[in-house]
Amino acid sequence: MAVVTGERTGQAPVITTAGLTKHYGSVHALTDLTVDVGEGVTGLVGANGAGKSTLIKILLGLLEPTGGHARVLGHDIEHESQEIRRLVGYMPEHDCLPPDVSASDFVVHMARMSGLGASAARERSADVLRHVGLDEERYRPMGGYSTGMKQRAKLAQALAHDPRLVFLDEPTNGLDPAARNDMLRLVERIGSDFGIAVLVTSHLLGELEQVSDHVIVLDGGHLLRSSATGDFLQRTGSLLVEVVGTETERDRLGEALAQRGLVCRPRGAMVAIDPPPSELAQEGAAHDLIRDVAAELGLGLMRLQPDRGHLEDVFLDGAPRV
C-alpha cells in the first residue's frame, strides 16, 4: 500500500506506521497500514469497525500489533510505550468517568497519574477545565453531567498533563448540533492555538472536513486514502450554474446547454456541468457560453461557480479494497 503523506515536508512526523496489522483470529481489525501523521489536526475517518480505535490502542501500547511497526513522537511502540504514554493524551470513545467524583478532583488526580506534582496538577487542571468550558459545574459530581459536559471532562483529563499529542476518539459522539460545533472548534484550537498535535476520529466525514488539516480514511482495516484536507476538496473541473426561477427555468437552461455540446445534469436547484469538452476547454470559454445561452433564453444568472469535491467521494471513487 502506498505511503501518502500529503504536503508534510520539513518536520518529523508525529506518528509513523509501517505495515501495521492487527488480527483477532479471523477478524482483521487493521491490515498493513502504512501512514504518516504530522502536526496540526489529523482526522481519522471510517465507519464503525474500520479500525480507528484499534489503531489508537496500538499506538498507546495497550494492544500489541500482530505485525508491523509504528513510532509515536519518535518512540517505538514496542519498546518505549511507557515513554509514549507520558507524552500523549487519550480521550476514549466510551464513558470512563466515575460518577461520584467532581471533574476538578478527577482531572487533578489524572494529571498526577501523568507525573505532575500536586500543586502543578491543581493549576493545570484549573487551566484546562477553563479551556474546555467547564465552569461552576466542575465542582459537582460527574454523575450528574450532561453528555456534553462529560465529553468536556474527558477532554480535560486528556489535556491535563500538557501532552504533545492527543488521541480523541469520537469526541462529538452523542452531542447535539450546538455542542458538536463547540467541540469541533475546541479540537481545532487544540491543534492550532494550543500547538498540540491531534489525531481525531469520527465516522462523520463532514465534521472532520471542517477542522482537520489532513485526513486519513480507513475502510475495513485498510487505508483508503491519506492526504491534506484541501486535496479532498479540490476543484473537480465541473461547474455549477443556478438561474432565477423554478425547476422549469433550470431545465430550459440545461437542455439548451446540452444542445451546445455540454454534459449537464440537475443537482438540486442548480445545473451541474461536467468538465467541458476540448473545444471549450480554454479558460473562460465554457463560462462565456453559459452566459450567452442564459442571455438568449432571457434567464437571470444567479450563480456560476466551480464544483468542489467532498470527503464522501473517497468512498464512492475508491471502491472498497479487499
Binding site: 511507557q82 504514554r85 507520558r86 487519550y90 466510551h94 470512563c96 466515575p98 497519574m113 501523568s114
Partner: peptide, 18 residues
C-alpha cells in the same frame, strides 16, 4: 471495582503506569 466498572481504568492505563 470502581475503576473497572466505570472504565476509568482505561485512562490510567493510557498513562505511564502499566
Amino acid at each position: 471495582s470502581r475503576d473497572l466498572r466505570h472504565r476509568s481504568i482505561v485512562l490510567y492505563l493510557a498513562r505511564p503506569l502499566s
